[in-house]
Amino acid sequence: MTTPLRLSVLDLIPVRQNQSTSQALTASIALAQLADALGFERYWVAEHHNMPSVASTNPPVLIGILAANTQRIRVGSGGVMLPNHAPLVIAEQFGLLEAAFPGRIDLGLGRAPGSDPVITSLLRSSGAVSDVDAFPRNIGDITALLHPDGATVKLTSGNYELRATPAATGIPEVWLLGSSEFSAHLAAAQGLPYVFANHFSGDSTTHALNVYRREFTPSENLAAPRTFLTLNASVADTKEEATALALPQMQLMARLRSGQPLGPVATVEEAAATVMTPAQSEMIERMSANWIVDEPVNAAARIRSLAAEFGVDEVMLQPVGSAHAGASIDASPARLRTLELLAEQLLAAE
């Protein structure tokens, strides 16, 4: 008998052609509810700004909405881009979320800006500290502030006691996210669970996880290294359909990486009629090799193989399928189907 994998979801709340933010959010709520019902472990939302194809701009707000519309699944950030925010504000937000949904909140922290320099400047105009040297200290501040005992701030006039919330009975689970060796070293040094962004920076995954596991120092909250694998996935009844559904997102990523303006996610028909440059077509070919784009049996087998290769028992999937023209505007049928098909294959012992 094969041990079941734990599956989780990463959602950027994609906005496709002719879809409003409200409709995209409605679709993601339905996706979270399905993941909850199917037995997925956690559901994370990202932080991106000023992108016409992404509605996931404010993780704490989204987490509150999604947690209120689900029953048991853990809901969290993948992640909050900490240099954009004051540590106390993040600690207060997630302290309240944990109080409202005890035992269900994850706080994933990253150090990337999540947008272009103009937006980054506007986000940081409130005085959030953005230099790299402050990042480890800010993580430590947040974990201390979230603890029921709080933290002590030393002032010239004496000590000042500070807590994110006045009477915490639990704390959210804090994860460190990254796409470089820096984050692996830091997560290991602070004894935090760690996720490397394999879904968009997969070339260094093995090295980053080896660094993290080799250097890990046990902490009060974590005795041994803990991580999982992130993957992009489009799964349908046939490989041809899965490929067609994934192409709009692949084209969007190719435009992003080649510095072209972005728009909403195209429909399957719009993507099929789009001509990409030779360089962009080469990028898409590489994505096709790295993403999980297949029918359910082969897709599940590859996910199991990758989990074994990287030594993890949990895989976080970003369902990337777009929609056909004429599909319901406030639903994501391809993303729903990806979760259904993989749950059938992976969330029950064989």
Rank of each mutant, 00 (worst) to 15 (best):
A343P: 11
A308Q: 15
D36T: 02
H199S: 03
L341S: 08
A99W: 02
L342N: 11
V293P: 08
A99S: 15
I90Y: 09
H185Y: 14
Q345P: 11
D133W: 00
R255Q: 13
E98S: 06
T274L: 03
L82G: 11
A37I: 00
I292Y: 05
T238L: 01
S56D: 12
G140L: 12
N298Y: 02
E314P: 02
V315F: 06
F216S: 09
L109T: 07
Q318V: 02
E282V: 01
V75K: 08
R124T: 15
L145Y: 09
D116N: 13
P278K: 05
A349M: 10
A325D: 15
V9H: 08
E220T: 10
L25W: 07
V275T: 15
S115M: 01
M316R: 07
S20N: 06
T227A: 11
S180T: 14
L5E: 14
Y212F: 05
G140Y: 10
L122I: 11
L82P: 11
N58V: 05
S125F: 00
Q260N: 07
Q190H: 11
E269A: 05
S179I: 03
A325C: 02
Q19W: 03
D237C: 00
V118Q: 15
N159W: 00
G78L: 03
H49A: 08
P52A: 03
G321N: 09
S22T: 15
A343S: 15
G95A: 09
Q71F: 01
G127F: 06
I139E: 12
M283S: 12
T206C: 00
